[in-house]
Structures are given as structure tokens and as C-alpha cells.
Simulated scan of single mutants.
Amino acid sequence: MNREPKAKSQEPQTSGRSDTGRSERAKRAEGLPFASERLTFLEHLTVERGLSRHTVEAYGRDLEYFAEHCHERGLALPPQIDEDCVVAFGPYLASKRGLQPVSIARALAAARTFLKFLAGEGVLPADPSALVSRPKLWRRLPDVLSQEDAATLCEAPEAEAQAGGRLSWRDRAILELFYASGLRVSELCDLKLADLDFQMGIVRVTGKGSKTRVVPVGRDALETLRRYVALLRPKFAGPKDEDRLFLSRTGRPLDRIAVWALVKRHGRVAGIPGDYSPHTLRHSFATHLLEGGANLRAVQEMLGHANISTTELYTHVDAKRLLAVHAQFHPRG
């Protein structure tokens, strides 16, 4: 009788806060240099290059940093940007923004792409970043769950199901699909009901650059998804007949923040140590496939990586495991 209020507390209400944050950020961005040029560039990324909304938003945030950096140097017009300004952007991000090397490299790449675009449009006489060397980074090995911990995380919502939690079927379907198909969190949130093919056992995914790929879904994930779609989702779907696969109890599509919170909450309940996220399940999906002998090209296709060098990172994770086995069992390990 009194379980419904408790269930409401399980799902974070984030939309109002994030909308406020976005509006405040937009006002601040408009007051920074190159506002119209930045807007034109972001429209170019969306319309001509077909990048996803999440990718364009990331470019926008990085270019706000660049505009702030230029503002502090007293630069108000694009032609005033010079090579020294580009070189100083990395140290600015580290000292003033406290960003990590990977985030700094991403922001520098965004600024380079922006400046190259302005030069191509004739706004700049030349690209001031063309001769600036790119920072070299050690590639960080992704965090990966053991096969046992991945299974425990996927099964964690069952404890809530036994206590009468209404959302447990949906939550388990999300966790199982992450681990079974290696989706990015934005890809999972954007899935439509029609993207699932239960007969073929596949899901059609629209990834980066609006590229579509087909990914297999394992038996356990399919069974959990069938249960969610048949028994729980119809209770959430409202009169608008929302076509997204995963819905909140109010019938609205789940956003990335809610899904991140969901993964972390069930991980804590399951007692899994460490810092993990939806991407941890994607990393685990790829690593466990390669450990089982899967072909690297097949894993690349399932992950939606444009470059196989990105997928090769997971072979280093497997090599790390092999080194540990060698050290433990070899007489001179």
C-alpha cells in the first residue's frame, strides 16, 4: 500500500536543474567573444557534418572555454587570435579550469577544428593552430568489471523486485542491454521501441555521426527486455504514445543523468567496489568478448568505432589480465 511513494524516490528528478544550468550557461556564452562565429560553427556541425546533439554540445562547452581564454587575453575579434593564444590554451585549461589531460586534448581539438573552419570561411586569413604541435597522451586503460561483478550488477535490481519495486524490471533491462550490446549511454537513451527486433535478437543503434549499426542482444537481455516491454512499459506510456524504449514512471524518455544514477545506485546496492558508470559496462562488454576469443574487427563493428585503433585499446586490457595470470602461475613469472 505504501510502496509507491518509495518508488518515486528511486528516480532522480534532474530536468529542472539541468535546464536551469543550460540557460545560465547559454547567457554566459552569449557574452563571450566570437558568439556568432561559434553559433555558425555549431550549426555547421549539426547540419553539414551530421554530428549528434551530445557531440555538438561538447564542442560548444569546449569553445566556451576557448572564448573565455581569449577574453582574458583581451581578444574580441577572430582575426586577433594568433599562434601564441592557441599555445597558451592548454596551460589555461589546466591552471584555471583544472581539467585533466584527456579533457584538455579534447578542448584543444575542438578549438583547432573551429579555427580551421573560420579560416575556410574566410573569417581568418589563415589557421593560427596549423603549426601548433598536438599534445601526446598516454592512453588510459578503461575500467572493466570482472565477469562475476558484471553479472552481479545486472542482477542487482532483482532485490528491489522481491521488495515490490515497480522499476526493477526496467532497470534490469537497461543493465542487461548495456552489458549485452556495449551501447553508449546516449545511444541507449535514444533507442526507440521499433529498434528492437526480438525475432532476430538484434537492436538497431544510431551512434556517432548518425551512423546506424546492428548489434546482437544476448538471450538474458532479450528475456528481460521482453518482460519489461510486455508488462511494465505499457503502464508508463501515456496518451502521447511515446516511442522511446526506456521511459520514466511519468512516461517521459529517460535522460543520461537518470541512467547514470541508476547504474551507480544498483552498483552500490550490489556492493561492487570502485567508480563505475554506464561506460564501464561498455568497456566490460568489449573486453569480455576479446577474452573469449572474439575477432577484433567484429568487436569494432559492434562498438561503432570508426577507427580500429580505438578498439585495440581493449587488447591492452586483456594483455594486462594475461600478465597477471602469467605472474601468478608461471614458475618465473
Rank of each mutant, 00 (worst) to 15 (best):
P125F: 15
E68T: 06
Q300V: 12
P91D: 09
K8T: 09
V102Q: 13
E291C: 11
T287H: 06
T55E: 02
L262Y: 13
V269W: 12
G274N: 04
I104F: 04
K96E: 13
P216A: 04
K96G: 00
R226W: 03
D318P: 00
L313F: 08
I257N: 15
P216H: 03
E155P: 08
L188G: 03
E301S: 06
Q100F: 00
T287V: 08
E83N: 09
G274M: 15
R166L: 06
E176K: 12
L313H: 14
P239N: 02
R204V: 11
R244H: 10
A306K: 11
A151H: 13
I308S: 04
M1D: 12
E301D: 07
S168A: 05
A327I: 04
G182I: 11
D255C: 01
W138Y: 13
A261R: 03
F246Q: 03
A111T: 02
E57T: 07
S186F: 09
L51P: 04
L289Y: 01
F34E: 00
P234M: 08
L108K: 04
Q80S: 11
D195Y: 08
T287Y: 11
H316Y: 13
V229M: 13
L322R: 01
A180Q: 07
R268P: 00
D197Y: 13
G251K: 00
D62M: 03
E158Y: 10
G207K: 15
D84L: 05
G182Q: 02
